[in-house]
Design a protein around this nucleic acid. Structure first.
Length: 889
DNA sequence: GCGGACTGCTTACCT
DNA sequence: ACAGGTAAGCAGTCCGCG
């Protein structure tokens, strides 16, 4: 949906990107607790479903609606009498004998229900145990209904029942999720309240686009089409203009290197900064003794307010948190919000004066939605697939630098020693980065979260904090409920479908994965890379893979074997995974990807489509892996194994066919093949063959002017037509390598980029020889500028004391730092250099030039360059001018 | 007591 | 808390060596 149309629909502020700000007069009225909760009026204009919760005080599900015109949140409480429940295969007659159940204060009543059991492919009659509140089903570890049933039933019946046959289903689903599924609600979508009822808003333009999409897919079977329609509607509906505020706090600490513990909240909050989408740029400072004003200049428009009392400072901070529909922090769950809440309690605030709901791992807001960017950017799938690995460390500074070109202010003093203005400037910069991480690229982050919320049927808070396996689980759950299917227990899937049958190449892995073809070493010109777009999701769709269909119970299907495995797949019924993931894949490949690149569309519209296709990419990339992950609720190893096996089958077939057509295959990995100088006809032939025989498309991904292969897999350098260079897996680009070597490697890369044809290679080779020599001589002459140029940068996988099997070098360095009182934990980056004396490593900070072990660095230079030099027919030792004899010595 | 062959551990990368 | 496959370097172990 184009932004223009969105604005017309909502008549909201113009939304053209982060540079053009719509400045409104901030609304500084004090939050009034009497207005809480903000119950939706009987008729509420179009609003976005942004969050859901269970309100224990009222005993009802609660939906938070964001009304973009007023920029306010409204609460809508359930008016259907929906209650929490779980299922069991025991009859009410049997259940009535369980005293602890019947006497449970939360027990309400039984209902009999027909459900479809996907594991047995049969309809079953189950008892729905309805409770008065969600805690009764699965609250405390002891004494809740889901535990009472398996614990007590064997004791209760005269005829003993096999405890393995006592089943409880769906008792671990969060109540508000259950509510969302049962009422057919779609988080992230637009609703109105009409006469007190929650009604989905119909947006004409979006519906028209949905029809357009359906037309594009008119040849798909009806079953697939209905899923395409469902997804398309969720994805085409517009996004609002968000009203949000970013917040950051600083706390006094007597020990400079130590972060104050948010649970103790022992020290005063000395600074709080805000930055909002409607023009607030505010810093609160606490007056303290012996602190100087300072003369630092703050960015324009920043207002500073001093407080003599911490209580007042916190109260005004809370005023913001009671008023904004979206509050953004960086690590607010574990620090800012937790500290604020505990500190406020300590200073005498009443619970209902505090706008924060403190949980075990999260801190939510009573009024609006708290987005903790740290959690969101930490998500590996988001990091890798949504942001293309642009940031590496999940710190405010690194993410800020990579995405919005803003870094934290480096401090030379401890926080507690800063002047007021230094502190204000520092804190404001943090909040500015936090704000911009949300505002950049037309509020991409919030829109991405909104889209993911729609796909997964999860509140925005949850979707921004949880991993991709939860997102996939939840849309699967939604579909089970919609189709009145029993959601199977993980252990039942595993027991029935069993483990895997293939042997992994890597020790300790569960099954065999993808194929990597040995590359043909050397330099190859005019290389075509062809691949299967979204290979694994395609396989899941085409081969009808899912936990129900792989190793299904039907005898007739047993002949429908999956290549290279003993598994078979169902011929009678479509798997949910196949339909849901298949539809998402088709939409991404055939609609969203092309649309995001379509120059005839407005930039706003392309941007929106880019966000959607990015969200789909994240989900699709994980959609196969989750089935092989024990933490996934529908864990089913044979499904993952079958997917990988068919992948191997597909690439092998393509390679065979290519060779049959007389095309030289240079390399291949998982879903791609590198073809040497193929003709147009050969390519067309191959495409047609794949389409007809594998029922899969194979696409031309890119054409390299030339590629350099060594004999190593997952290692190559390719130069594209425009002179840009792809470097894959080569040591010279790995992040732990010293800058000195990386720079040398980059020069090599730049030189190679300029080579256009085989003739130009000779000249390039001479230049490369000189480059390598020069680099070698600089090391020999010990000319490297700063020691940091020589530092290896390796991440600690665990806390330094946690390594028991071996002590890798970076751990040795880390321990040396630890002895000097530095706190180090998993995830920290250790910078160390190689030195002459035992133990041959030293943290950069502790090392000096003269102790550097130059030969070690030359060895690294050697191995780094070898990966490319081999292929060029050059030899490192000869290049640096060593004779064969010298080398021997 | 020492060096070489070997395995295992660890990190970073590819798809 | 998505998967498996590959490269590289180092730590640690075992064995032979009269």
């Amino acid at each position: 949906m184009p932004q223009k149309k969105l604005d017309a629909f909502f008549d909201t502020a113009k939304c053209t990107g982060s540079n053009e700000k719509v400045v409104q007069v901030p609304n500084f009225e004090k939050a009034d607790l009497k207005d809480f909760p903000p119950i939706a009026p009987a008729n509420l204009p179009p609003s976005y479903f942004v969050s859901a919760a269970y309100d224990g005080k009222v005993g009802k599900a609660l939906i938070k609606l964001y009304e973009p015109k007023s920029g306010k949140i409204y609460f809508w409480y359930d008016n259907t009498g929906h209650k929490p429940y779980c299922y069991t295969n025991l009859s009410p007659y049997e259940l009535e004998k369980i005293d602890r159940l019947m006497n449970h204060p939360g027990f309400d009543h039984f209902e009999i229900e027909e459900k479809f059991d996907p594991l047995t492919d049969k309809y079953v009659t189950v008892t729905k145990i309805v409770a008065k509140d969600p805690l009764a089903i699965g609250g405390k570890p002891k004494g809740c209904i889901r535990d009472i049933i398996p614990e007590d039933s064997p004791k209760v019946f005269e005829v003993p029942i096999d405890p393995n046959n006592i089943k409880v289903w769906e008792s671990r689903i969060k109540y508000y999720q259950s509510y969302i599924y049962d009422l057919g609600l779609y988080p992230g979508m637009i609703y109105e309240v009409k006469d007190g009822n929650l009604v989905l808003k119909h947006v004409k333009e979006a519906e028209e686009t949905v029809q357009l999409i359906l037309k594009k897919f008119e040849n798909a079977p009806p079953e697939e089409l209905s899923y395409i329609e469902q997804w398309a509607r969720l994805l085409e509906y517009p996004a609002p203009k968000f009203r949000y505020i970013a917040m950051d706090i600083e706390v006094y600490s007597p020990v400079a290197t130590r972060m104050p513990d948010p649970r103790e909240a022992a020290y005063p909050i000395i600074c709080v900064a805000f930055y909002s989408s409607d023009g607030v740029k505010q810093v609160f400072l606490l007056r303290r003794e012996n602190v100087e004003e300072g003369s630092e200049k703050l960015p324009e428009g920043v207002e500073i307010k001093y407080f003599d009392s911490e209580n007042e400072l916190i109260k005004e901070t809370f005023d913001f948190l009671w008023r904004y529909p979206f509050v953004v922090t960086f690590n607010g769950d574990d620090f800012d919000f937790r500290y604020l809440a505990h500190r406020a309690r300590k200073l005498g605030f009443q619970k209902d004066e505090i706008p924060i709901e403190v949980g075990k791992r999260v801190c939510l807001l009573k009024y609006g939605v708290h987005i903790d960017l740290y959690k969101f950017f930490f998500n590996r799938s988001i990091q890798v697939y949504a942001f293309g690995g642009k940031y590496r460390d999940v710190t405010l500074s690194d993410v800020g630098k990579a995405l919005v070109e803003l870094e934290k202010i480096a401090l030379e003093k401890a926080i507690s020693e800063l002047t007021y203005r230094e502190l204000a400037k520092y804190c404001f910069r943090d909040v500015e980065i936090t704000y911009k991480l949300v505002s950049f690229n037309d509020e991409l982050v919030l829109k991405l979260i909104l889209v993911l919320s729609r796909i997964s049927s999860m509140p925005m808070e949850d979707v921004s904090r949880q991993g991709v396996s939860r997102w996939i689980r939840n849309f699967m759950h939604r579909e089970h409920r919609r189709r009145k299917m029993l959601i199977p227990n993980s252990e039942d899937i595993l027991a029935l479908k069993g483990k895997t049958a293939t042997k992994a190449i890597i020790k300790g892995k569960k099954y065999k994965g993808a194929i990597v073809v040995d590359p043909v070493p050397g330099v190859h010109f005019n290389v075509f890379v062809m691949d299967f777009p979204s290979l694994y999701p395609s396989i899941i769709k085409i081969w009808n893979l899912g936990y129900q269909t792989v190793l299904c119970p039907h005898f007739e299907c047993r002949s429908n074997l999956i290549p290279d495995t003993p598994h078979w797949v169902c011929k009678k019924k479509r798997a949910l995974e196949s339909l849901l993931i298949g539809a998402l894949r088709d939409l991404r490949v055939q609609w969203y990807k092309p649309r995001s690149k379509d120059k005839t569309l407005s930039p706003d519209m392309r941007n929106w489509y880019e966000i959607i296709q990015g969200a789909l990419k994240v989900i699709l990339n994980a959609s196969y892996g989750v089935f092989g992950s024990e933490s996934f609720d529908l864990y089913c190893p044979p499904v993952a194994e079958a997917t990988a096996a068919i992948g191997r089958h597909s690439i092998t077939q393509i390679i065979n066919k290519a060779e049959e057509l007389g095309i030289k295959v240079l390399y291949g990995d998982t879903d791609s093949v590198f073809l040497k100088n193929p003709s147009k006809e050969q390519i067309e032939e191959l495409e047609k063959w794949a389409e007809f025989n594998l029922k899969m498309n194979i696409d031309l991904d890119k054409v390299y002017r030339y590629v350099v292969f060594s004999s190593r897999k997952k290692n190559y350098l390719g130069v594209l037509a425009d002179g840009s260079v792809d470097v894959k897996g080569l040591t010279g680009k790995k992040r732990h390598m010293p800058l000195f070597i990386k720079k040398a490697f980059d020069k090599l890369k730049d030189r190679l980029a300029r080579v256009k044809n085989p003739a130009e290679f000779e000249e390039a080779k001479r230049d490369i020889i000189n480059m390598v020599r020069e680099c070698y001589m600089r090391l020999k002459r010990r000319e490297w500028g700063s020691l940091h140029e020589l530092a290896f940068n390796v991440v600690l996988g665990e806390a330094p004391e946690h390594y028991t099997k071996t002590t890798p070098q970076h751990v040795k360095a880390a321990r040396m730092l630890k002895e000097r009182g530095l706190e180090l934990k998993a995830g920290d980056l250790i910078s160390f250099v190689k030195v002459m004396n035992e133990p041959h490593v030293k943290p950069v900070e502790l090392a000096s030039d003269h102790e550097i072990d130059v030969d070690k660095y030359i060895a690294y230079l050697h191995s780094t360059f070898d990966q490319v030099l081999d292929a060029l027919g050059l030899d490192f030792d000869e290049v640096i001018g060593l004779t064969k004899l010298e080398r021997f010595m």
